[in-house]
Amino acid sequence: MAQDPGRTGQPRNRQWLWLLILPWIGVVWVPFYNKIEPTLWGFPFFYWYQLLWVLISAVITALVYTKTKALPSRRAGQGGAR
C-alpha cells in the first residue's frame, strides 16, 4: 500500500507559521509607507519599501518552510513494495 506523502513524518513546530503575518502587516499598512522621502537610487520610498518586502517575504517563507516541514519517518525506508 502506498503511503500518503503528507503523513510520512512527524509534524514540526507550527508556531513558526505566525511569522508569515509579518509581510502581510508590512504591506497592508499603506499609510506607513505612502510617502516619497527617503529616496533610494532615485526611487521613492513607496516603491523600494514594497520591493524590500518581496525579498523579506521570500526569506521568511523559506525559513517557515524549513522549520515546519515534516521530519522523515524512521520507518519510511522499511517495508518496501509487495
Results as ranks from 00 to 15, higher is better:
I60Q: 07
T66Y: 12
L40N: 08
I60E: 10
W53P: 09
T68W: 05
T39D: 04
I36N: 11
G42D: 12
A70W: 04
S57H: 09
I56V: 15
L63E: 08
F45N: 10
N34D: 14
E37V: 04
V64D: 07
Y33W: 15
F43P: 04
Y33N: 04
W41V: 09
V30R: 13
L71K: 10
N34R: 08
W41D: 10
V54P: 06
L52S: 15
K69Q: 14
F43M: 15
V30I: 14
W53L: 15
I60K: 07
V59C: 14
K69R: 15
S57L: 08
T39S: 12
F45M: 13
I56A: 14
V54M: 14
V59Y: 10
T68N: 06
P72V: 04
Y49V: 06
N34L: 13
P38Y: 02
A58Q: 13
L71Y: 01
Y65M: 13
T66K: 13
E37I: 03
P44Y: 00
A62T: 11
P31G: 01
T66P: 00
Y65S: 13
W53A: 09
A70C: 05
E37F: 03
T61M: 14
A62E: 12
F43I: 06
N34T: 00
P38V: 02
W41Y: 11
Y33E: 00
G42E: 09
Q50H: 11
V54R: 10
Q50C: 09
W48G: 11
Y47C: 06
I56R: 07
V54C: 12
F45V: 06
K35I: 01
T39A: 10
V59H: 07
T61Q: 08
N34G: 00
T66E: 14
T39W: 02
V64R: 02
N34I: 00
T39Q: 15
E37M: 06
K67G: 03
V64I: 06
F43C: 03
L55N: 06
S57M: 09
P44S: 04
Y33D: 00
I36Y: 09
A70I: 04
W53F: 14
P31M: 02
L40A: 07
L40R: 07
V30S: 02
L52G: 12
L63R: 08
P31E: 01
P44A: 02
G42Q: 10
Q50F: 00
I60W: 06
P38A: 02
F32T: 00
T68H: 04
Y33L: 03
L63N: 04
W53C: 10
F32Y: 13
Y47A: 13
N34F: 05
Q50W: 01
Y47N: 13
F43E: 14
A58D: 10
S57W: 12
P72C: 01
K35M: 08
S57E: 13
Q50Y: 01
F46K: 15
W48S: 11
K69G: 01
K35C: 00
L51C: 12
Y65D: 08
Y33M: 03
L40D: 02
E37L: 07
I60P: 10
S57F: 11
